[in-house]
């Protein structure tokens, strides 16, 4: 968050007015298995950054631990590879520490819904301004095929050799429940759709989250075929309300309607894709904290740090 005593002077010297291209944004060669869905998510993310053209040095790509969480090494921006499940609270520190930044967090279903589940709830409810992309392959990829919180009942893994028996979570319902102010769902086989969802998420003021079904070809091949038309599945796009007064519009989805979003989240597998919910009214934590600063500094009449400390100590004589 920017604040009176913390604003840094503009940094003029290096002029990188060149537009951000995929070439510039490309870093290490991905270490993923050939055919892994995560490649397409990465390619889409380059396109998102090409579209948005944020100043290069102000983009942060961050992640926890997992195959998907290797993401930051493959993107040439400031970034980090943190510990398993805790990337969100770290990223909250980044976002609140410098409100000028554009913070993107990537991770897997285990990272986000299992070990990091509680952090997801609290970062979302606080509406910290950042974008979170969950690359859901319904399995633990990096640790080589254990059951994940989104593995369907019956899926055979090394930890459930006779098939998973525990009820999986419903990601969309879970995300809506957290109080996230932008919730969308996409699919790694749909590059244009991913680009659109991630772009809208990035532009959303507040905590935006996109769940992307991204196949692990190594340990859960075919997991998402039922939503891939060329494999005989159905690709069901959410039709958003246009408020154009046409009769068709009445049946379209109102993204500001939380109850309607929950209804969509309750659809039978494989469900629908698109924006489930968007709330542009709730203030971000970034704004709320900045307001606290403004109020406090009004009360203290913009006293300097030195004056503040001296005044406090004078009261303790």
């Amino acid at each position: 968050m920017s604040s009176p005593t913390l604003v840094s002077p503009p940094t003029p010297a290096i002029t990188t007015a060149v537009p951000l291209t995929k070439k510039i944004l490309t870093a290490d060669h991905p270490t993923w298995c050939p055919g892994c869905g995560d490649f397409a998510v990465l390619a889409s993310f380059y396109r998102v950054l090409e579209k948005l053209q944020y100043p290069h040095e102000k983009i942060v790509t961050f992640a926890g631990i997992g195959c998907s969480s290797r993401f930051p090494y493959f993107v040439n921006t400031h970034g980090g590879h943190y510990i398993h499940g805790r990337a969100l609270p770290f990223a909250a520190g980044i976002s609140l520490g410098n409100d000028d930044l554009h913070v993107f967090v990537f991770g897997g279903d285990g990272d986000g819904f299992s070990i990091g589940g509680n952090h997801l709830v609290h970062t979302a409810r606080k509406n910290v301004n950042l974008t979170y992309v969950i690359m859901d392959n319904s399995v633990y990829g990096l640790t080589k095929k254990q059951t994940s919180p989104t593995s369907p009942i019956g899926f055979k893994t090394k930890t459930d050799p006779t098939g998973a028996i525990d009820q999986p979570i419903n990601p969309m319902r879970t995300l809506l429940n957290t109080g996230a102010t932008f919730v969308a769902r996409s699919h790694a086989t749909q590059v244009n759709h991913m680009v659109e969802m991630m772009t809208r998420a990035a532009k959303h003021p507040g905590f935006s989250v996109v769940e992307i079904l991204s196949e692990c070809v190594e340990f859960y091949a075919g997991a998402f075929d039922s939503s891939i038309p060329r494999k005989g599945g159905t690709w069901s796009l959410i039709q958003e309300k246009k408020n154009d007064g046409t009769p068709e519009d009445a049946d379209r989805h109102d993204v500001t309607d939380e109850v309607a979003a929950f209804k969509l989240a309750g659809q039978a597998w494989p469900g629908s894709f698109g924006v489930f919910y968007e709330n542009n009214v709730r203030k971000t934590k970034n704004v709320l904290e900045a307001e606290l600063v403004t109020k406090a500094r009004e009360r203290t009449k913009n006293a300097t740090d030195l004056q503040l400390l001296q005044a406090t100590f004078a009261k303790m004589r």
Binding site: Y82, R86, A92, G93, I94, S95, L96, G97, N98
Partner: peptide, 10 residues
């Protein structure tokens, strides 16, 4: 984690 995030921003 949040505190290290702050430190990361300088």
């Amino acid at each position: 984690s949040t505190a290290i995030g702050f430190s990361y921003t300088g």
